[in-house]
Design a protein around this nucleic acid. Structure first.
Length: 576
RNA sequence: CGCGGGGUAGAGCAGUCUGGUAGCUCGUCGGGCUCAUAACCCGGAGGUCAGGGGUUCAAAUCCCCUCCCCGCAACCA
């Protein structure tokens, strides 16, 4: 079920902010890697929406290719039946991880087929595609061709490494995956990729932010500098793919098919003026999220295809690193394989999302482990953030009868001068830091900035010791009562005012913190806001205004509730 | 010359581009507090920044060499 942006909230004329994940190949279920990309994209999309951008998040499935056809036939069902049976696994997984995608595209959908065909026609008409006979080796599982030259290089390398480029039966092995290659001879359509090396290099130079992080850009640049070969973009040996209109018997190479999803999902190739308007509004994409293994497709082939078709290029391709599980002995036999949904059950949706975004530098490889995940969960979420909420809500309940305190602006200003307001100051400075971090796709940085405010608030409680103020305030109240005077008539702030001041600041701090945490931890943030008597923070589209200090209205009642992130032990999460 | 990542306190990392008292989180030890999820706050211990050489007034950071580890085999991102 797609998540719908409240378009009334979004600035009507503002630029769309279009983000994509790769479309995932259906030969398997969602795993840690796909979940990582998808959750990261979701967090950015939510942050952008919260900041008033018209964000549009696309994910989906890559359902074509020979491997799919083979898997289906092994199961004795049609390819369509097979992909239909797999698609719900992804849809359910993204729902369970609280991914707010706006659209979910499947390459077997008619809108996509239409888009791919339109794209092929466009390239054909402008002469970017030609026909030629291919004779040589082909890796069926990878759907990749290899030239004699490539195989010769591979043989040389294999020999030096003490391995072999051929198996016992004398068949060539795939340089990429090591499985045997097939010899094929077929007529293929080729895309003139070789024409684009210079234009691509010029683009990289002119748009230093196009490929991130930098290390990946360097890789791509040196690859392209080595020269590009024309790319075979059609297949004739099987038919599970998009038929190419002007070449009967030919279907699209899966990668070309797959890349076009970024266009077909937003109306490309449609005759409907509404679709065309949508396309104009959304394209070019602001960011394609990809794993570092597929940067060549996204940073070389894809932009070259777009150049050929006369379309603008996406603003950024961000390649994140891999999650490494070294050190942690895992395996199906041990029964402790890290499965996204299982981890989310242990640590809650929010705990899961937080861990991967806060503890790993997005863009670099990260080592992950259950043990570390438990540490981060307990330290940041249970002890720091969750416990802060408990402390503040409990004290408000205990000392103020659960009511958000009212202070005259005059009193508040006087107390700020007298006692200082470190939380307000830090909170006001948070917006710029937070947005800058998100713009740099630095989740760890953004979350660390929020955690600073959490830590400062916990310290603030120690500094102000509300329990001590409460006792004095109690005495003050009793004394006033005995003397028959009202504290309301006091000229200077009373001790009771001081107590209200401190607790108001703390309540306001948790309101603001929850707001900033919302893109990464939607469920718990929403719950905190509910306990403060507020609505869903994610329905807002004005982060700056919403986070302005003093936004919490007095008079409302709070609800204490249970621990937001209960502490967990190793036994709870199955370590041991 | 296969490609790529990396070696900084017990663990995980930042700092390296733009040289200048070695920093963060967790753990650990001691103390404080009591509002709270045995949580929170303060303080301490713990590192010759893999090794060697060079440049420099000064190197974790720049240059050269050596050693070691990891991914490229999986549900692959």
């Amino acid at each position: 079920m797609p998540y719908h942006v409240a378009s009334e909230n979004a600035p009507a004329a503002g630029r769309s902010y279009y983000l994509t994940t790769p479309i995932y190949f259906v030969n398997g279920r969602p795993h840690l890697g796909t979940a990582y990309t998808t959750v990261a994209a979701d967090a950015l999309a939510r942050a952008m929406r919260l900041d008033g951008r018209d964000a549009w998040l696309l994910t989906g499935l890559d359902e074509h290719g020979q491997k799919v056809a083979q898997t289906a036939s092994a199961q004795g069902i049609s390819p369509q039946q097979w992909v239909d049976s797999v698609a719900p696994l992804f849809i359910d997984a993204w729902r369970d991880l609280n991914v707010s995608y706006d659209d979910f595209i499947r390459t077997t959908e008619e809108r996509h087929v239409r888009g791919v065909q339109h794209f092929f026609n466009t390239l054909y008409e402008c002469g970017a595609i030609y026909k030629s006979v291919y004779q040589g080796y082909y890796c069926v599982p990878d759907e990749t061709f290899f030239t004699d030259e490539q195989l010769a290089e591979f043989a040389l390398a294999a020999e030096e490494a003490g391995g072999a480029a051929k198996n016992e039966s004398g068949e060539w092995l795939c340089p990429d995956c090591g499985r045997p290659l097939s010899f094929v001879e077929e007529e293929n359509l080729f895309f003139r990729l070789s024409d684009y090396a210079e234009p691509l290099l010029a683009h990289y130079r002119g748009h230093p932010e196009f490929i991130c992080p930098e290390i990946r850009k360097n890789e791509v640049v040196s690859f392209v500098q080595g020269g590009l070969r024309d790319l075979s973009i059609s297949r004739t040996s099987f038919d599970w793919g998009v038929p190419i209109p002007f070449a009967p018997g030919h279907i699209s190479y899966v990668w070309v098919d797959a890349l076009i999803n970024y266009l077909s999902a937003i109306g490309y190739g449609s005759d409907d003026p509404a679709d065309q308007a949508l396309f104009t509004r959304r394209w070019p994409a602001q960011i394609h999220f990809v794993g570092k293994d597929i940067i060549r497709f996204h940073c070389v082939i894809w932009p070259a295809m777009l150049m050929a078709a006369g379309l603008p290029l996406p603003e950024k391709v961000f390649a994140h690193g891999f999650l490494l599980t070294k050190g942690e002995k895992m395996g199906k036999s041990r029964g402790n394989v890290m499965q996204p949904l299982e981890l989310a059950r242990h640590f809650t949706q929010d705990g899961y999302r937080y861990y991967f975004l806060a503890d790993i530098q997005f863009g670099a490889d990260g080592s992950i482990s259950l043990k570390r995940m438990l540490q981060v969960y307990n330290a940041d979420l249970a002890n720091s953030w969750g416990n802060l909420c408990s402390r503040v809500l409990n004290m408000t309940n205990k000392y103020l009868g659960g009511e958000i305190p009212e202070l005259w602006p005059k009193t508040y200003a006087a107390l700020s001068r007298k006692l200082g307001n470190p939380l307000g100051e830090l909170a006001e400075a948070l917006y710029d830091k937070y947005i800058a971090a998100f713009e740099a796709i630095d989740y760890a940085g953004a979350l660390a900035a929020v955690l600073e405010l959490v830590d400062r608030a916990n310290l603030y409680i120690e500094e102000t010791a509300p329990w001590t103020i409460a006792k004095e305030a109690q005495k003050e109240t009793e004394a006033a009562l005995a003397a028959g005077i009202s504290l309301d008539d006091a000229k200077a702030p009373t001790i009771n005012d001081q107590l209200c001041f401190v607790l108001y600041n703390l309540l306001e701090a948790i309101r603001v913190i929850a707001l900033y945490y919302a893109p990464v931890m939607p469920a718990s943030s929403c719950e905190i806001w509910r306990r403060l008597g507020l609505g869903d923070p994610l329905a807002l589209s004005n982060l700056k205004a919403a986070s302005t200090w003093g936004g919490l209205e007095a008079g409302g009642r709070i609800e204490v509730g249970d621990a937001l992130f209960p502490r967990k032990t190793e036994a709870d999460v199955g370590i041991g």
